[in-house]
Nucleic acid binder design. Structure first.
Lengths: 132, 132
DNA sequence: AGATAACCTTCCAGTAGCGGGAAGGTCAAG
DNA sequence: CTTGACCTTCCCGCTACTGGAAGGTTATCT
């Protein structure tokens, strides 16, 4: 199985697959000519990585998740702990973005958006954040 | 005004202030000994930058906003356009994170999180995203 | 005068997670 | 035997800084 074929199947760019090998997430075999030879197990891992990454896990979290996946003696508590921490980070990020959104939406709605220079958005940025 | 003093007033680390100078956002004067000499205008700009960055604007957006702020002949429409685009990016990001959150929360709540190896989280990552 | 500490300077390297592109080897088809 | 489509490694670039090394300047203390 060549890298292009694996890229098509896993949905990951070939560049990303090479990168994952370079940081030790996968270890595909090599053909005599130096080309990578992927086995089914590699493809499963790459699919796992693609899905974990698409859920926003960091590459290091993915490494840990992959190790747990391979470890038949794992405790599901360890997986849940990783996922819960990530969930908490997502919640914090959403809260942060919603706060930005509220402030910015106020400023935008207050701006007439015409040819004149007066602008509440710039005024808001120019002034120290007043109590509200 | 030394950089440490400006850092204290603007809330930005000295490192960041040097970085902003290096990319041309500010141009503080220099004393004969080579030390930066900040004027009130520099401090205002840095405060502006700190607030714009804290609202999540990219540094390049900040450069454009700063230019508009300095341009007394600006059209507020230009400012509003920048801010609206940023608002849209924030909304898209929130939607993306909420989608991740929903999926991940489902998986986490389905996991018993004990000493046993069975884990719906890993199962969800191992399997292709089923239709739902 | 000398020492010490607290400033200041520049420059280099590293972070996350790749993407772009150069330079070069390999292989199947025509 | 050449073309073209693969494959390889390697290095730079991206964002927005942060840390740290190496070294100059200034004020204070003895």
């Amino acid at each position: 199985m060549t890298i292009t074929e694996v890229a098509r199947r896993s949905g990951l760019p070939a560049k990303t697959i090479r990168y994952y090998e370079s940081i030790g997430l996968i270890r595909p075999l090599r053909r005599p000519n130096g080309y990578r030879a992927f086995r089914d197990g590699d493809i499963m891992k790459l699919g796992f990585l693609a899905r974990a990454r698409s859920l926003g896990f960091s590459v290091e979290d993915c490494r840990a998740l992959l190790a747990l996946w391979e470890d038949k003696g794992r405790a599901s508590a360890d997986v849940k702990a990783l996922a819960s921490q990530h969930l908490a980070r997502i919640e914090a990020k959403i809260a942060e973005l919603e706060s930005l959104h509220a402030t910015l939406a106020d400023l935008v709605s207050a701006c007439s958006g015409d040819h004149r220079p007066d602008c509440p958005i710039l005024a808001g940025l120019a002034a120290p954040p007043a109590g509200r």
